[in-house]
């Protein structure tokens, strides 16, 4: 059975979707990813869709679901690398992609995740100006 590989990258998980997802594959991804977040207790998930040409409402729902589920497990989800044509189509379709953050590329996505996690960590910590990222 074909599965989308999930890589652990430091404190985060990285999923690169290279092919058009058919329904079962997408549902498996959702399952695997959530299991992995819990098992490795990661704080962030990066989903790279730069190679995806079509995001319809089904796929949009999967992405949104992953975001909401990870949030319940205390991890943030960032969808990175969306193609301009895909973004325009989603807006026209009226799909807001709730529950996930977006970033231009994997680097920027990591940066975003780090800043989100840091904000959470600093809550309750003593205020310390030196810890701000560069």
């Amino acid at each position: 059975m074909e599965r989308i590989p999930i890589l652990k990258l430091g404190a985060f998980l990285l999923v690169t979707i290279q092919i058009d997802l058919y329904d079962r594959l997408a549902l498996h991804l959702e399952e695997d990813l959530v299991a992995m977040v819990e098992k490795k207790s990661v704080k962030g998930v990066l989903i790279d869709i730069s190679a995806v040409g079509i995001v319809d409402s089904f796929m949009g729902r999967i992405l949104g679901n992953i975001g909401s589920m990870c949030k319940l497990l205390d991890a943030e989800t960032v969808v990175v690398g969306m193609q301009p044509a895909v973004a325009i189509t989603l807006v026209e379709l009226g799909l807001p992609l709730k529950g996930v953050y977006t970033a231009l590329n994997v680097d920027k996505g990591m940066e975003l995740l780090r800043s989100k996690i840091e904000i959470e960590d600093t809550i309750g910590d003593d205020y310390d100006d030196d810890t701000s990222p560069n």
């Binding site: 058009d20 040409g53 079509i54 995001v55 319809d56 409402s57 089904f58 193609q83 301009p84 044509a85 895909v86 325009i88 189509t89 026209e92 379709l93």
Partner: peptide, 29 residues
Amino acid sequence: SRVREYAVKIKMGLVSQTKLITAASEIVR
């Protein structure tokens, strides 16, 4: 993929292609 082949054949722009295929995908689903 079939719809995309046709769209490429008549040199449809990428955004229009994406919109068309997404619409087709919604309807078949």
